[in-house]
Design a protein around this nucleic acid. Structure first.
Length: 275
DNA sequence: ATGCATGAGTT
DNA sequence: ACTCATGCATA
């Protein structure tokens, strides 16, 4: 939790003082009138990939998007300072038999995520395997999950609430898997054959220079108005939607337990500061 | 492991 | 138009 609080603090700090090194912020004017959308030193060799996605949209993708039943009981404020953290309240709740935040405690989540990964690997199971296995677990309203989600769970790159919702499910799988491991098991997987004739959608990629600009804008105004988004989009020569989504995703990132901003060292209990 | 995106549910 | 959980595609 200490790490989280510190990371959070740092984040605030960053946004407040970082512009000493970001000259581009001069034209951001988060207070409204944006008459200063002047040209910033942009790299002339900026490949624009955004028009790469012609029509990668097939109805099938929409339909096949099965939602395993949103298993989220997100009741507002999932931010570190819930009343249950108060010593007195915690004691009271504990006395009442209700397990307070033994389940919601970030440290517990972190500890579990690590144990989970170790034991999963010990079992010789991949993240993708776990995701699929969850469906076979047949828990109420629990379907399969992607490799992405399992990975994010293990690396704590999910929201606090998301982690809490997934923990019991993954815990159940782990126990089941280890139980069977004793009885020795193993079966070859089914060959995943993609439904013939499907256009794979292309992932639009935002070039580094544009990304840097977006980050600068975000530092000043994480939630730009539609108009500003449009202006930024035009200025960077990106589609408005791409910019809007970028900001949304950026905001989501901020809410992750572990801010993955440093692609360097990954997943090790020692001084793993995200930043 | 992570970037860009979708879609259901909110505000 | 946003938040949230989640995933395809890709580095």
């Amino acid at each position: 939790m200490l790490r989280i609080l510190m990371a959070h603090t740092h984040r605030i700090w960053s946004r407040k003082y970082m512009h000493h090194s970001m000259d581009q912020l001069d034209m951001l004017d988060p207070t409204g009138s944006m008459t200063t959308l002047a040209p910033i030193s942009e790299s002339p060799l900026t490949p624009t990939h955004q028009h790469l996605h012609g029509s990668y949209h097939s109805m099938n993708h929409m339909m096949s998007h099965h939602h395993p039943g949103t298993l989220s009981g997100h009741t507002g404020g999932h931010h570190g300072h819930s009343a249950v953290h108060h010593p007195v309240i915690t004691a009271a709740v504990a006395a009442a038999g209700l397990h307070p935040d033994t389940d919601t405690d970030p440290r517990e989540l972190e500890a579990f995520a690590e144990r989970f990964k170790q034991r999963r690997i010990k079992l010789g199971v991949t993240q993708a395997d776990v995701g699929k296995a969850l469906a076979n677990l047949k828990l109420p309203g629990v379907g399969a999950l992607s490799q992405s989600t399992i990975c994010r769970f293990e690396s704590l790159t999910l929201s606090h609430n998301n982690m809490i919702a997934l923990k019991p499910i993954l815990q159940a799988w782990l126990e089941e898997a280890e139980a069977q491991a004793k009885n020795k098991r193993r079966d070859p997987d089914a060959p995943s054959v993609l439904p013939a004739g499907e256009k794979k959608r292309k992932r639009t990629s935002i070039a580094a220079p544009e990304k840097r600009s977006l980050e600068a804008y975000f530092a000043v105004q994480p939630r730009p108005s539609g108009e500003k988004i449009a202006a930024i989009a035009e200025k960077l020569d990106l589609k408005k939607n791409v910019v809007r989504v970028w900001f949304c995703n950026q905001r989501q990132k901020q809410k992750r337990i572990v801010s993955s901003v440093t692609p360097s060292m990954t997943g090790h209990g020692s001084a793993g500061f995200g930043y």
